[in-house]
């Protein structure tokens, strides 16, 4: 499913649109950056509650096009700026990571 469709269907608050037309088929969830460095599939959506600029760096390095902050985390300005610079979609959700991943799974996004 396309990034912008996911944002619409899950009612996400979008901070950076990124490449909204890019299709996302896989997802990864986690807050340990080295774990994401190890396990994230290329092109995946990343669900996390980490909210700092290094999240953008990890996404760039792992070719992650879409980050969703769970549990009502409002992204820090530096994170928004870096995602915009790197054209990475950034959104937040009121849902916790568990339920958010469940919703993504229902939309066909799997690991």
């Amino acid at each position: 499913m396309r990034i912008k469709e996911i944002c619409e269907k899950l009612g996400l608050k979008v901070y950076v649109e990124g490449n909204g037309d890019q299709e996302v088929y896989q997802g990864v969830a986690g807050d340990l950056l080295s774990f994401i460095m190890r396990t994230a599939p290329e092109g995946a959506v990343w669900v996390t509650i980490q909210n700092h600029v290094n999240v953008a760096a990890v996404a760039v390095l792992k070719d992650i096009p879409f980050i969703i902050l769970a549990s009502e985390r409002e992204p820090l300005q530096e994170l928004i700026e870096n995602c915009a610079k790197e054209n990475i979609a950034l959104a937040s959700s009121n849902l916790g990571a568990f339920n958010l991943c469940g919703k993504l799974y229902e939309l066909g996004v799997k690991d």
């Binding site: 807050d31 340990l32 950056l33 080295s34 774990f35 190890r38």
Partner: peptide
């Protein structure tokens, strides 16, 4: 707390 120090750096 920032998500570093997972003990996976050198293994990665």
């Amino acid at each position: 707390e920032l998500g570093f120090g997972a003990g996976m750096g050198l293994p990665n």
